[in-house]
């Protein structure tokens, strides 16, 4: 059963020292996410949701507690080991897209493969495949400033997928998009989930969270609610 678990946290805690004050951003979160799940993390600002996300994304290490990602204990890895885990196991989709503005869509998607040490031909083949998957087969040579917000976010999704990650981590992916484009992106994520991709979505919008199958609500650094969306049964 263990290989079915993608994320397991135990007592995950993060404290910050801000001046004389210690901010306890995350206070002992226990969470299990299995392969193929589509989970939305919700919570108001200050709920510790961003800090939690950073730890799940291996961008930050916890003060206390353990975190297993795809069967590997990652909570006390070194910076460079974390970089490797990010490269192999996680695909990021950010609110602000975070594409390299001077690079083409194709090159942006290739980027994680460069750091994985994949050869040039194989890189291009896989990057093309993912860009076609998100419907941008005809925009590969365009640079981000020449694209719409929705197109940029789809480039980011292609980039997140190109390493075949265990986990797709989407941090407010629709925060900079209009509602129609937002629906497109969410539909894209749903589709990916249906084909088996584990997705963790962070959002503060209820209707966006509705696209997930399960919602985890954080408040004051702890899990307040953890439930399945109603439509899940009907979809299943």
């Amino acid at each position: 059963m263990k290989d079915q678990v993608i994320i397991r946290t135990r007592g995950l805690t993060k404290h910050y020292v801000l001046g004389a004050e210690t901010v306890r951003a995350v206070r002992g979160v226990d969470l299990v996410i299995e392969r193929g799940e589509f989970v939305a993390i919700m919570g108001p600002s200050g709920s510790g949701k961003s800090t939690f996300m950073n730890m799940i994304g291996c961008l930050d290490t916890p003060t206390e507690g353990d975190y297993w990602l795809n069967g590997q204990l990652v909570s006390d890895l070194s910076d460079d080991q974390l970089a490797r885990v990010r490269n192999r196991e996680i695909g990021f989709v950010f609110q602000t897209f975070n594409l390299l503005p001077r690079a083409t869509a194709l090159h942006n998607v290739e980027l994680p493969l460069i750091y994985a040490g994949v050869g040039s031909k194989e890189r291009q083949r896989r990057a093309r495949e993912k860009l076609e998957l998100v419907g941008l087969g005809d925009r590969m040579g365009h640079k981000p400033p020449e694209m719409s917000g929705g197109q940029r976010q789809r480039v980011a999704v292609a980039r997140a997928l190109v390493n075949e990650p265990a986990l797709l981590l989407a941090d407010e992916p629709t925060g900079n998009l209009d509602s129609v484009t937002s629906q497109d992106i969410m539909a894209q994520l749903e589709q990916l989930n249906e084909s088996g991709q584990t997705i963790l979505l962070v959002t503060h919008e209820r209707d966006i969270a509705q696209h997930a199958r399960r919602q985890v609500h954080l408040k004051d650094g702890m899990i307040e609610q953890d439930f399945l969306n109603e439509h899940v049964e009907t979809r299943a």
Partner: peptide
Amino acid sequence: TREIGIRKALGATKRA
């Protein structure tokens, strides 16, 4: 700085 952040998030090591 932002480019460096992106590269690091995508798996660039310190050395890279």
